[in-house]
Design a protein around this nucleic acid. Sequence first.
DNA 1: GGGAATACATTTGTATACTAATGAAAAGTG
DNA 2: CACTTTTCATTAGTATACAAATGTATTCCC
Lengths: 154, 154
Amino acid sequence: MDDMKHDPSNDSSGDAIEAYVLDEQIGYALRKANQRHMTIFGEKMLDGLTPTQFSALFRLVESPGPQSQNALGRSVAMDAATIKGVVNRLEARGLVMSRKDEVDRRRYVIEATAKGRELIKAAMPVMAEITEATMAPLTIAERRTILRLLAKLS
Amino acid sequence: MDDMKHDPSNDSSGDAIEAYVLDEQIGYALRKANQRHMTIFGEKMLDGLTPTQFSALFRLVESPGPQSQNALGRSVAMDAATIKGVVNRLEARGLVMSRKDEVDRRRYVIEATAKGRELIKAAMPVMAEITEATMAPLTIAERRTILRLLAKLS
DNA sequence: GGGAATACATTTGTATACTAATGAAAAGTG
DNA sequence: CACTTTTCATTAGTATACAAATGTATTCCC
């Protein structure tokens, strides 16, 4: 009888440490996949642009008009504190400009500069390379599948 | 002829800004899925244990003997600088202990305390909840698939 | 045995990322 | 119109994450 206490197969609730494989947990797997992608991104992207910086700048370049800082943040899934730092660094590098909104005086209006637009343009084929390198271990069908499943998780 | 310059369908190289959908990029999708998972984790996990802290502490609890700090880091995919901070915070909370290795005097040996082991034990059913909440949008088959594909990307 | 290469740990610096608190401006409501 | 709520932006604090530089200890190998 004493044996049962240490036999994981008797623990039907599944909360035994022995049965838990860290590498097969969704959070751990997401973190590691993201880690590898960011390494590839860092190796290939132009001018040391980071993934977040690329996302924010891309959104500014593709969108019709300028946007407020917070609105830009929401459109790339960054909170106010995070997007502030990103915009600051983009601005320090001359890729975006910000100015006070004259109508709504709480707001800052953020806009891509010509330099920022050109960098995004030049980065497009690089992004294709980054995607290819990241997705290389997957078949074409698997690439579609993982994007579909990740979208469901968001 | 002038029209062709602005028609994205003529750009067979696929590097036109218009054809690039940020939300469908692997990096962006990974970041957002990870973000949602970490929110769920933060809402449910005991004692404010973070995902990284949980991983490191879990590894210590499940492994037979104590480990050096760097070895522990490697086993949970964290570099030396990152694992140092994680171990410091775990130690400050009395969940792990570290001591100089008497054989190899470069090393610090890290070990889970009784308190750390009990926390991991108590966290196991919580992890099951976190996994369930994170995976909720997926069918059982899709859950298996995404874990398999994420593993391939790592 | 001794020099080169490697491994361990730390520190500094930069970049996300989120919480919570604050203050100012705008919007909504009775 | 006055009051409440919301929105915008900033700041401080905490926690990953990685690169690069440093110093010490160990291992490799001739």
